[in-house]
């Protein structure tokens, strides 16, 4: 049986950053330090199918802004409080915690929750990559509702949302903002048998391997990865919107990359919190639900959209999403249209 102990934590944390966007240095370091302080001898990692099929599993994630987390530090009890709130609502104890996604803090906070609750962490997650919205998960695609959802804020707040699945994001966003920009969410309560059906399996183990020193970056991409181009960022623009009406958590922006060699194409990366579309000389070459990310030429870390600056040398990579995202339902939930781009 796998466990994440102090030694595994370093690999897990490193693996969780390989394709992670939105992982501001501060919040990641914070979650890492926090996890190190709470995991003790180790948190067991279990397959969903290994659990009692009726056992309650709860997804735990950071909701909101990593910048806000880095600024307004946690009290420390947020993950536990969120899960306990959900347990009280359901009248059942959670038997395991599962990640919504495994990008940086979002890999570490479920681990912290599991450690605090004394339950195992499920080897898998709900995206196989990162999406900006809580409902953009394989859990949703599998018919599981994110609600009831409990939020614990850094000032001791506790909020329980109970609503139709497609309203969760609407309600969640203003609440998170009023909590200071971030909260720990416990959501998608489900039985282990359901989780086994909808989870993208094995991704925790995958990251533990990919985070081993010397492992290739591609080891973190379960379904394949390719390099779109290497180049230099020419400009970062606050884009004027894309004609859609979707209310997304932040302003879209547009990043222009000049390819350094080969065709010397001009690559435009359209971002809504994260990059959702890549155009090479005007032609779409990659798009959501595949994940597009910029890796800094120096340091090898993923460049956050809000840290992109002209002059940076980057490698633009495309991580192929799990097959379920390429189904019709998957494209509707995590494809370009979901980001308001009518292509």
């Amino acid at each position: 049986m796998t466990a994440v102990g102090p030694r595994e934590l370093e690999r897990f944390a490193a693996g969780s950053r390989l394709f992670a966007t939105g992982a501001a240095d501060s919040s990641y370091a914070l979650a890492h330090d926090w996890a190190r302080a709470v995991i003790g001898d180790g948190v067991p990692v279990r397959q969903a199918s290994d659990l009692d099929p009726g056992a309650l599993c709860v997804a735990v994630t950071l909701a909101g802004s990593t910048t806000a987390l880095g600024e307004q530090l946690p009290r420390g009890d947020e993950p536990e409080r969120a899960v306990r709130a959900l347990e009280r609502r359901l009248g059942t104890r959670a038997a395991a915690v599962v990640a919504l996604n495994l990008a940086a803090e979002n890999a570490l906070i479920p681990l912290i929750a599991a450690a605090a609750l004394g339950v195992p962490l499920i080897d898998g997650d709900g995206t196989g990559r990162v999406f900006p919205l809580v409902e953009q998960t394989t859990y949703t695609l599998g018919g599981i509702s994110a609600a009831p959802l409990a939020l614990a804020g850094a000032s001791g707040e506790l909020v329980l949302l109970e609503t139709a699945p497609d309203r969760v994001e609407d309600l969640l966003r203003p609440v998170v903002l009023s909590l200071g920009g971030w909260a720990v969410a416990a959501c998608y309560p489900m039985a282990a048998r359901d989780l086994a059906r909808v989870v993208v399996p094995g991704t925790v183990s995958l990251l533990l391997r990919a985070g081993t020193p010397g492992a290739p970056r591609s080891a973190a991409a379960p379904y394949g990865v390719r390099t779109l181009c290497r180049g230099r960022i020419l400009a970062v623009e606050g884009s004027t919107g894309h004609g859609g009406e979707l209310a997304l958590p932040s302003l879209p922006s547009s990043i222009l990359v000049q390819e350094s060699d080969g065709l010397r194409r001009l690559i435009r990366l359209e971002a809504h919190n994260e990059i959702v579309l890549a155009l090479a000389d005007g032609a779409a070459v990659a798009m959501a639900p595949d994940q597009i990310c910029m890796i800094a030429a120096t340091g090898g870390l993923v460049v956050d959209v809000d840290k992109a600056a002209p002059g940076m040398e980057v490698e633009v990579m495309v991580v192929k999403a799990a097959p379920v995202w390429h189904t019709q339902e998957g494209l509707a939930l995590g494809g370009l249209r979901a980001f308001g781009i009518p292509l």
Binding site: S65, T67, V236, P249, S250, N273
Partner: peptide, 11 residues
């Protein structure tokens, strides 16, 4: 350099 902050309200 002006970057919008992700996952935070507009502005």
């Amino acid at each position: 350099i002006v970057n919008p902050l992700s996952y935070l309200p507009d502005g």
